[in-house]
Design a protein around this nucleic acid. Structure first.
Lengths: 136, 136
DNA sequence: TTCCTTGTTTATAATTATTCTAAAGAAGAT
DNA sequence: ATCTTCTTTAGAATAATTATAAACAAGGAA
């Protein structure tokens, strides 16, 4: 359980003003035991449900992008019409259940080391992501 | 160099009628040495350039989806506003140059074996894709 | 051939996710 | 309090994709 005050500090430390909306979004995103996978629309609906307060869709977009930029959220590369985010920003991978459109975390140790043995001149590796698609 | 007749047969074998439009699309997609990464819009523009004939955008969508369904094209999981496809349908991976929005093939042997040591009850693995993002 | 059925193409409209805009409101500093 | 800057918001704009339904073409049968 993270207190509201901690979110206020987190936001201040990131030079993001601690507004009511952002704190509500923090509650929904970060006040959890497990990692959380979501689309903007998921989040938009959850905010109303969990906090009882409505935050405009534009603000949800703004805030998610701000948090992503600050490194508090990770974008998951996946083929979907919607963009998926993850509150687990550590280096890890995903299962994607195609039928249920659901993501499941895959720990690094469940995949083993991945050694990329090719390099592109002038470029460096920013991230390595494994996506394992699941079917029935 | 693949002849037009071969495309006609390929289409017939897939119970797709060999129309002028589909054959043109085949020429652009499959008459190449190297693997080809593209978005629908890339392809739409290339058809005009390479064949001199215009195919409607809707037909490009229809055909790409039909070819994807038949297994002649692979969809690449990536976070982009556009969907990327690949004419290389073998099991392999990708670099994505984030700045230039360009994909580069990564052979399986350049990545090494990936062993997924977690399983989800009732589900089986459909595909394993590695995406390596590149930055300058 | 000619006719018939079914599949295909097409322009255009509809849909959907996301971004933009500009005005009103709130936070923080002085 | 006042001022500046950041934030929120509704709604408009954009862009990719999908749906629609009418015209058209392919393939088969007579």
């Amino acid at each position: 359980m993270t207190s509201k005050q901690e979110f206020v500090e987190k936001l201040r430390n990131s030079s993001l003003r601690p507004t009511k909306q952002r704190i509500n979004i923090c509650e929904v995103l970060f006040n959890r035991d497990k990692t959380f996978h979501f689309t903007i629309n998921d989040l938009f609906n959850l905010i109303k449900d969990k906090t009882g307060e409505k935050v405009s869709l534009a603000t949800v977009y703004n805030t998610v992008h701000a948090f992503h930029k600050k490194g508090y959220l990770k974008e998951i590369p996946i083929n979907s019409n919607q963009t998926y985010f993850d509150t687990n920003v550590t280096d890890h991978h995903h299962f994607f259940d195609v039928k249920e459109e659901k993501l499941i975390d895959l720990k690094n140790e469940d995949v083993g080391p991945i050694e990329i043995q090719k390099s592109i001149p002038g470029k460096k590796i920013k991230s390595v992501e494994v996506l394992v698609k699941l079917e029935d």
